[in-house]
Every structure is written in C-alpha cells, then in structure tokens.
Amino acid sequence: MNAIDLFAGAGGFSTGATMAGCKVVWAANHWQDAVNTHALNHPGAQHVCQDLHQARWEQVPAHDIMLASPCCQGHSRARGKEDGNPQHDASRSTAWSVVSSAEFHRPYLSVVENVPEFMRWTLFPAWRQAMESMGYCLTPTIVDAADQGAPQHRERLFIVMVRAKHPLVLNLQKREHVPASSFVDFNAGNWQPIEKPGRATATLSRIAAGRRVHGDRFISSYYGNEKGGRSLHRPIGTITTRDRHAIVDGDRMRMLSVQEARAAMGFPTDYKLPENKRTAMHMLGNAVVPLVARDIIQEIARVV
C-alpha cells in the first residue's frame, strides 16, 4: 500500500508503516527540523514543511492509506485541555486537516493517532460525523505500546477508518512485555553523584523512596506519579518531549540518553536523530511508536 503521513515528531508512523510493508510516498509537518529528520530516514518520500491548514491536497500523490497524528497537546491531561486557551484551541483544530485531506483524496483507509482524551474533545462528535459523511466507518482502539513489544508503557488512541459499509474488526495480538533493562547501558552516559550541592530536596526524596522499593538500580521520574521509582524489570514509563526519566545506580545517577529513549520508543538503532539532545527528545516524545503502527497496519492488511 502507498501511504501518506501527516506526521508528528520523529516519524514513527512512517517507520511502522514501512515495517508493515507500506511505501510512504509523501509526508508533511510544520516543523522544519522534523521534516529534515524524516527525510534522512525516509528519503523515498516527498516532503513538505507547511501548516496543514493551508495544504494543497491536489499536490499530494495518490495513496491507499492516510496516516495522521494531529496535535495532542490541547487534549492531553499533561498540558491542559480547557477551551479558550488560544494555543490549545489552535492545536486541536489540526484534526480538521484529516477531514480536508480525506475529502479530496478519499483513500480507502485512514489511521489517526492521538491521546485517548481526543474522543472527549467538544468537537469530536462533529469531527466523527464529518468522516462518516464521506463513507468512513470508524474503529477506535486504545493501545499500550508495551503490549506490542516496545519497552515503554504508552497508551494512545488509534482510530482506524475504512470507506466501507461496516467498520473493521481488529484483533490485535498482545506481545510479551520487554523490560527497560533491555536498553539501559550502565557503562555509558554522563553520570553524576546523587549527593551533590544544589540537588533538589524533592529529587533526593524520590530517589530515597525508590531505593527502599527497588534497591540500588531503578528508574526515577523527575515529574509524574512515579514517586517510588520504577523497576528496570518492567517497561519504562511514557517517553515525553522533555527529560523525565533518570537512571539510578547506587550513589550515581544520570538522565536517559537519546539512544535509550530511541530504543524505548521502538525505533531502529540506526534511525537518525538530531545531534541536539533537547530537539531529539522533543521529537521522540511526540512520535508514534513504530511497533504499534506496524502491528495495527499489519492487522488492517489481514482483515481487509
């Protein structure tokens, strides 16, 4: 199948689609760094850097499946989703690009990824009705990336849409969980003493609580609900757009590296990312987990 990707972050939807046997023929994002990174890893696709509200859909090549990851920040609990916030209202409106693209091209299949709160958006019923008015039947499903073999717990909504009389019935098989220990390298990274001048009291408290539960080696989050840390023998928590996870090893600690975050997201080890860590982590935190995209698209191919 030929695919287009209204992509987010590092381009995990395209990577997963390629793993599933699709040919990605076109990809677009509003962030030039993300477009450049996608082009390095998917050189066979046409690339456009633009606001998709102004997209020229007649210039997009024909395709069998549209992949899309509208901005999630306005829906996410982590960022707030109140109406009346101009930034969040604008980010939510990117979902209408899916409608305008589908209206022009009418691909047989589309898959939209977002946070589960997307379905609680005030305008979601209108958005869904717009897709249904074009003959699409929707199958929403929430998938934890850990269930598809990524060493990360990350729940995301995937809405599979088919232009047919009946929705697709998907039977996504769960895979064995992969622990964080599979990618943490204790011989690499910029380690620092835990006890050092200026270390925040809250950080020391979290580490002390984690040590009581998990011993000398574990993962400690700088924000979120994991106040007692997380065992290395289970998948890591959600990779976000800024540094969140620290690796604790005895009396030393360091933040997760880009290479480790890439592995936690399920990208191939040779996937090229920006040299700047903040930029690379931002892209990874915004990306679709390739292994989830792969399994969903393979399951779609099985049932259509």
Rank of each mutant, 00 (worst) to 15 (best):
H166Q: 15
W31G: 03
G215L: 04
K174Y: 01
W127C: 01
C137F: 02
R262D: 09
P140F: 11
Y271C: 10
H30Q: 12
V304P: 00
A180I: 05
I142N: 13
I236K: 02
Y222G: 12
Q129P: 00
E82F: 00
A293W: 00
D295C: 06
G285D: 06
K23E: 14
C137H: 08
R206A: 06
G11M: 07
A17L: 04
E275N: 14
A287K: 01
T240R: 11
M131Y: 01
N36L: 08
H282K: 15
Q73C: 03
W96Y: 13
I159H: 02
N85P: 04
A68S: 10
R254H: 08
L170D: 00
G74L: 12
S101G: 13
G135E: 08
I207V: 15
A146I: 02
S91I: 02
P70F: 00
A246P: 00
I194P: 02
A34P: 04
N114G: 11
A27E: 12
E113V: 01
T15N: 05
H214D: 07
L138W: 04
R120A: 12
H53A: 15
K23L: 07
V304I: 14
H282G: 13
E260G: 06
S181A: 09
Q54P: 00
K165N: 13
C22P: 02
P116A: 08
D51E: 13
S181H: 05
S76W: 05
T269H: 09
E176K: 14
G12K: 02
A164R: 13
G80V: 12
M134I: 03
M281H: 14
F218Q: 06
H166K: 15
V178E: 05
R262S: 11
L157C: 08
H38G: 05
R230K: 10
P140R: 08
M281I: 15
R211Q: 15
P197I: 08
M161N: 01
S257Y: 06
V98A: 02
M253T: 09
E176Y: 02
G224E: 05
Y108A: 13
S14L: 09
D295V: 02
D5K: 07
I297W: 02
K23H: 14
Y222V: 00
D185I: 03
Q73S: 11
P235R: 03
N286F: 06
A45Y: 06
A27Q: 15
Q129N: 14
C72S: 13
A263N: 04
D83I: 11
T238F: 04
R230S: 08
L256H: 11
A55K: 10
H30K: 14
N190V: 11
C72N: 09
Y223Q: 08
V303T: 06
L204N: 07
D185W: 01
A27R: 12
A146G: 04
R252Y: 06
F118W: 09
T37D: 11
A62N: 10
P86A: 12
M283Y: 12
F13N: 02
G228E: 14
V288M: 05
A8V: 01
D83V: 11
M255I: 07
G84R: 08
A68W: 00
